[in-house]
Write a protein that binds this DNA or RNA. Structure first.
Lengths: 256, 256
DNA sequence: ACCTGAACACCGTTCAAGT
DNA sequence: ACCTGAACACCGTTCAAGT
C-alpha cells in the first residue's frame, strides 16, 4: 500500500539496522550515524515518486516518512514546512527543464528549444506540475537560461527594452501553456472514470442553429493533437517576433 | 475572525430565529422553512468571498458553514464534495469572464476582447483562480464564446481546420497566461512578507561576466508592466494570425 | 427534503525527549 | 545535529437522527 519507492526499509527498525551495512569509509563514530541519512535531494526524489505514482493528494509527511523509512516529522528537519517543500519541488522541475540548455545555431531554434524543454519537463511530471503550479514563478528560469534566450533575441536584432519584453513573453507563455496542459492531462485522467468527458460529444452535437460557426468546425476540434497545438502556439510567437525583428533592423538602418 | 460575509446570522441559533422575519408571501407551513435557505448560488458567492478575503486555504466546509449560519456539513447537501464545489467555482469564474461577450466590428478586436475578459475575470479573483486552476479546462469556454471566436476566425479568412486550431490556441493561451499571472500575484503577495522578493535585486546585480546578455537588459526587466506584457502577448498572437490569414486568402484566390 | 451533531480517519506542525 | 513519539488543532466525509 505504501508503494515501496524508498531506498531504505519501510520501518524505523529497518532504518536503525541499516547502520550496520553502512559504508566503512563513512566511519560512523559508534554505531549511531553521525551524518543524517535523510537529505533534501533524497526527500525530493521520494516526493516526486509519490506524486507521480499515486497523485498529488498522496504527498503527505506521513506517506513521505513511510517511504523514507523515517518518522513522519523527520522531513521537517530539512524543510521548514510543506510550503517550503513545494517551492523546492518547483525549483527542481525547472532545473530539470533547463539542464544543459544551450544556444542553438539559429536564434529561432534557441527560443523553440526553451519552450519545448519547459513543456517536456512539465509533461514528464504532470502531477508534480499541478501541485507546484501556484508556486512556480519565472524566478525559476534561472540566470543561465535567461542569458541564453536574451542573447538570442539580441541576435535577432532587438534593442534592450524589446529584448527584455519578448524574453518575458516567451518564458511566461511557454511556462503557462505547459502547466495548463499538464493540469488538463490530470483532469481528463480523473474525469475518464466519471462521465465528465461527455462534453466532447456535446461539442459534436451542438445545435447548428444556435452555434453555426462552431458546428462548422466541430469535427476538426475533436482531433486536435496537443503537441501540434503547442508547436502551433510557439510557431505563431516566433513568426510574430521575426516580423518585428525585421522592422527593428530596418528602423535601425535609418537611425544608426 | 470569521469575517461575517454571510447574509444570515453567524450561528445556527440565529438561523433558526431568522424564520420569524421571513417574507410572508413565502408562506412557511408552520414555523419551519419548507424550502431550504441554502442554495448553490449562495454557497458559491460565500465561498468566493471567503477566498478573496482570507486566501485559498481559508476555504473549508467549517468556515463556509459559519459564514452561512449553518452546520459545517450542510454544504454537502448541495455539492457532492469539495472537488465538486471547486469545479463549480471554476465554471462560475468563466461564466463571469464571458458574461455578455459579443462579436466586435473587427475580428481582431473580437479575439482581443475574449483574451482581455479572461484576464480580467482571473485578476478580479486571483485567490479563486489559484484554487480552481487545476480544475479549469477549456470546457469552461462555453459554446456561446466558442461560436463567436470561431466566427471571427472564419471572417478573417481561415478554413475549418485552421479556424479550429487557432481558436484553441487563443483560448488556451489567454486562459493559461491569466491563471499564471494570478498565481504570480498571489505568490508575490505572500513573498512580500518574507524576503523572497530579493531575487529581483539579484537579477540587477547578476555578474556581467557570466551573464553578459542578461546584464545588458536587466534594467528593463525590472520595470515591465504586467498588463503591457499581456497585451504584448495577445498582440503577437493576432499579428501572426493576421499574417497567416493573408496567406490563406491569397491561396484561396488561386484555388477557389 | 433538508439540516444537525457526533464520530472517524486523516492532516501539518510543535515540542520535549532521546542518541 | 538529527531523529522519535506523543500531542494539538484542524480537515473532509459518513451516518443516524431530527424536523
Amino acid at each position: 500500500m505504501t508503494g515501496g519507492t524508498g531506498t531504505r526499509g519501510a520501518t524505523s527498525h529497518d532504518a536503525a539496522a541499516g547502520d550496520q551495512d553502512r559504508q566503512p569509509d563513512q566511519a560512523p563514530r559508534r554505531g549511531r550515524p553521525k551524518t543524517s541519512f535523510l537529505s533534501p535531494g533524497l526527500i525530493l526524489d521520494t516526493a516526486m515518486a509519490v506524486i507521480e505514482s499515486d497523485g498529488p493528494d498522496a504527498l503527505t509527511f506521513r506517506r513521505l516518512g513511510a517511504d523514507l523509512g523515517a518518522n513522519h516529522t523527520a522531513v521537517l528537519r530539512h524543510f521548514g514546512g510543506k510550503d517550503e517543500l513545494l517551492l523546492a519541488l518547483a525549483a527542481r522541475l525547472m532545473e530539470e527543464a533547463l539542464d544543459d540548455f544551450a544556444a542553438a545555431a539559429d536564434w529561432r531554434e534557441t527560443l523553440r528549444s526553451l519552450a519545448r524543454r519547459t513543456r517536456a519537463a512539465c509533461l514528464a511530471h504532470p502531477g508534480v506540475t499541478v501541485v507546484v503550479a501556484s508556486r512556480t514563478s519565472r524566478r525559476a528560469a534561472e540566470f543561465q537560461g535567461a542569458d541564453i534566450v536574451i542573447g538570442a533575441l539580441l541576435e535577432a536584432g532587438f534593442e534592450g527594452r524589446e529584448a527584455a519584453s519578448y524574453y518575458r513573453t516567451l518564458v511566461d507563455t511557454a511556462l503557462a501553456l505547459s502547466i495548463f496542459e499538464a493540469s488538463v492531462t490530470m483532469l481528463d485522467e480523473q474525469a475518464r472514470e466519471g462521465d465528465h468527458l461527455a462534453w466532447q460529444r456535446e461539442f459534436l452535437t451542438a445545435s447548428p442553429q444556435k452555434y453555426p460557426h462552431l458546428a462548422q468546425v466541430a469535427q476538426h476540434l475533436a482531433d486536435i493533437d496537443a503537441e501540434d497545438q503547442f508547436e502551433n502556439a510557439i510557431g505563431l510567437f516566433i513568426d510574430a517576433v521575426e516580423l518585428r525583428a525585421e522592422r527593428a533592423r530596418v528602423r535601425d538602418r535609418y537611425r544608426p
